[in-house]
Amino acid sequence: MTKNKRLIWCLMGTLLPILFIGNLFYGSVSIPCQEILNILSGGEAEKESWMFIILESRLPQAITALLCGASLSASGLLLQTTFNNPLAGPSILGINTGASLGVALVMLFMGGSIGIGSLAFSGFLAVLAGAIIGALCVMAILLFFSTFVKGTLTLLIIGIMVGYLSSSAISLLNFFATKEGVHSYMIWGLGSFSGVSSNQLPFFSITIIIGLCASTLLIKPLNALLLGERYAENLGTNIKQARNLILLTVGLLTACTTAFCGPIAFIGLAVPHIARLLLGTSNHNSLLPFTLLTGAVVALLCNLACTLPGENGIIPLNAVTPIFGAPIIIYVLINQHKIQYFN
């Protein structure tokens, strides 16, 4: 590892705890630092509400942001390598939308009973199941087409089309649904890391961590796939098996984040590019862990940006992520002849 790379690792490594702490200390309600330290070390706070804000809202939200950022970025990287296309990502391939459709079905047809605010555990399990089934359905469609569609570009476009189909199904559902259902679905659609309550957090974390571990086990076939499928096959990679495992991992990670936090755009697409540009390599040995780290940092940063208006409320997450994500994608596309990993 060169000096430069080590420096970038260190930088990103220090940013993570700083931003994590920042997320705990900064919010729409201002709480004195001394009190926050007291609460975090298990002590008593001056006000009961402060304790609730820190332990039931900010802490789970920070952990959720960290895990969501990592898992969306990992999904993006896995998809970009598998589809051999720098513009692949969970949202572009329709996996996000598939999960959304599942969520919409559950939310709208169970009426407003599963409000995002009510946080009923069984309701959330239903939403999660809907998301996973939706995401896996899109995956199944992609897998089905991948058995006889040769080019990955064609497959990418099929993914986009499936995404459109799911969106129009969602619009139709909205048309027939109750007012409360539509409202809670809309709120969910804005995206937020506050969707995971402290009692759901262990379940959420374990699912995400399983998915992230699975992605690190795929490093060897991912590196082989960089050479293209026929080269990878010649290097002893079982292409079908590898591709299925990759898509399954992506499905799990995307469904879980989408169910809890809404369809979050751009993190999955942009973070792998940031990681590649900073680290200067496509080798998944270092790129994958670095992408996870960068994803966590970016998500924490976005979450912090959401609370910027201070006491006037919170900006929806999906209003923030494109502001940082879109310029990066445009930069990458314009400079692609200068960027090594494109050539």
């Binding site: 051999n84 960089l226 050479l227 026929r230 010649n234 390599t281 496509s282 090594q340 990993y341």
Partner: peptide, 15 residues
């Protein structure tokens, strides 16, 4: 068997 193909690979970012 080792092969060398004409396939376009995305390996510009590898050494």
């Amino acid at each position: 068997i080792g092969v060398v193909l004409t396939d376009k690979a995305q390996i510009g970012g590898l050494t």
